[in-house]
């Protein structure tokens, strides 16, 4: 039961992340939704898997995948967003502030 709940929550958040990927205007906002929702979604699915298998090797593997996913996704998001800025991807027209422009010159 708990397994099903955790996996459903995970799938739901992954769907939200994908909707955000389509709806949000520019690459920076899209990365926000992709990083946050998809990371928590995957972690939730992994917790569901860990509960399903109980104390066994799959349990430890699933739990240890969580910090790996967490660090890799945050570092990847940082690398992508910095790379996008240096490549020259435009900020959306609703952007109100850009302090980074002066710093990289």
């Amino acid at each position: 039961m708990a397994t099903a709940i955790f996996i459903c929550i995970g799938v739901l958040f992954n769907i939200f992340g994908c909707i955000g990927l389509i709806r949000l205007p520019d690459v920076y906002n899209r990365l926000q939704s992709a990083t946050k929702c998809v990371t928590l979604g995957c972690c939730s699915i992994l917790i569901g898997v860990a509960i399903h298998f109980g104390i066994s090797d799959a349990f430890f593997k699933a739990l240890f995948a969580i910090p790996i996913i967490f660090f890799s996704s945050t570092v990847a998001a940082h690398a992508l967003i910095r790379g996008a800025y240096h490549f020259g991807a435009k900020l959306d027209k609703r952007t109100v502030k850009d302090d980074y422009k002066d710093a990289v010159k």
Partner: peptide, 10 residues
């Protein structure tokens, strides 16, 4: 309506 107001802050 997508309530966003993005920006890069220091």
């Amino acid at each position: 309506a997508m309530p966003i107001k993005p920006g890069i802050v220091k």
